[in-house]
Simulated scan of single mutants.
Amino acid sequence: MKFNVALIPGDGIGPEAIEQAVKVLDKVGEIFSHEFKYTKVYAGGSAVDKYDKPLPEETLDICKKSDAVLLGAIGGDKWSNLPLNKKPEKALLTLRKELGLYANLRPAVLQRSLKNDCPLKSELVKDGIDMIIIRELTGGMYSGEKGVRQGKDGKEAYDVECYSENTVRRIASKAFEIALKRRKKVTSIDKANVLESSMLWRNTVNEVAKNYPEVELEQIYVDSASMKILKNPGAFDVVLASNAFGDIIADEASQIVGSIGTLPAASLGEKSLGMFEPNQIHSSVQDIAGKNTANPIAVIMSSAMMLRYSFNLNEEASAIEKAVSETLENGYRTRDMMTDGMKLVGTREMGDVIAKLLSK
């Protein structure tokens, strides 16, 4: 089978991490008889430097015509003082909107070999951590009406949290569909005791749940969820949340899995076209760029998500995930994950080891 992939190496360590993902994908293609055609395009800070805009029209056009988009990293301190319309992050937001991507998937998995690196007590993670946060991307206060006005006590700033039934129904259906392929549990997070938008969210999720009788639905408030993730993370399977709540909860979950450098993310829409990136897409870590010390695992794992969710190649995706797990179990670490007794490797060497394990 042939697949067209738009590659956005991006900024900082992005290009060298993308190189390793391509190396692994090419090995997958060799083993499973697939052909991946890559088209490199500019977006983010590199596009600002070259085209004076974070997302050139050519990049958007190529992404729309591709089967999937794979990103390395976006942004960095170099561009932090630019106006909002030229900030590298604008490229990410525009791509999500133009490609019709409304569901952000962020797995939080504690690799067995990284259990000692988890900041939680061992008795709290004895059952492991394997959850996926499904964050709605198009609604809520991030996308709602906002502004600044003069009030009786000075300036007032406002950001409106607004959700429609159809928007909630769409993201909830996505969460339940994913739960069917996992442990069949959805935890929906809201603040329905004080927010009208959350009351609509909860009621709509309840309606969607009726279509999935085999999936258990748990509904909890966001403050309770933030505590439960730290006290009993193994209780979560699929976590469904609004734009703002999902942003916060996903970041919290990413801190309890030993290394954020192993975590991928995906943004999906109604069609198979998706955008795949490291969990911390904004971590371009410019100070180590080009030094062969960056951790490429998150981008490699993002390529596995691409195979699973855009190309429906589940066996191939599992092969990458297994190779990454075996690499970590064999003690290979980049500098950000290095501990006593482990084997220090560089960016390219980590890609080599994972690709070699795929061959086995």
Rank of each mutant, 00 (worst) to 15 (best):
M227G: 08
M338E: 08
T167A: 15
Y309K: 07
L55H: 12
F3L: 08
V208D: 00
K155W: 11
P56Y: 13
P264G: 09
R112S: 11
L357N: 14
K210M: 12
E161D: 11
S197H: 04
S80K: 15
L328I: 14
T204S: 12
M131P: 04
Y158W: 07
I129T: 01
S359D: 15
E58W: 02
L99G: 08
P233I: 05
S359G: 06
E216R: 10
L110D: 08
E321M: 13
S143T: 15
A289W: 13
L137N: 14
L230V: 12
V22Q: 14
S318E: 13
K146L: 00
K181H: 04
S122C: 00
I281D: 00
H282Q: 09
Q255I: 03
N232L: 06
F311I: 14
I320S: 07
S164K: 14
K65W: 10
S302N: 08
I354S: 03
M305P: 03
C63Y: 05
V208F: 11
V125N: 07
V48R: 04
N193Q: 04
D67I: 13
I320Y: 03
K27F: 03
G45C: 05
G75R: 02
G44W: 02
R135L: 01
P264E: 08
E136G: 09
Q219P: 07
S284V: 01
S188F: 07
V22I: 13
N279F: 11
V285S: 05
I178N: 06
A266T: 09
E252S: 10
R106S: 15
K121E: 06
A108V: 11
R183S: 12
A294N: 05
D153S: 07
V48S: 10
Y221E: 01
L263C: 02
I18M: 11
V109G: 01
I248F: 10
E315M: 04
I8M: 10
F32S: 12
I297L: 13
L180G: 02
L70A: 14
I249A: 07
G290W: 03
S224P: 00
M275T: 04
G75E: 00
G10K: 10
G269P: 04
K23Y: 08
E277Q: 10
V148Y: 03
S283R: 01
V194Y: 15
T39W: 00
G346E: 08
V5Y: 05
S303R: 13
D190G: 11
N4G: 03
S33L: 09
N203P: 02
K78Q: 13
S188V: 00
R112Q: 12
K2Y: 10
V222Q: 03
K65N: 13
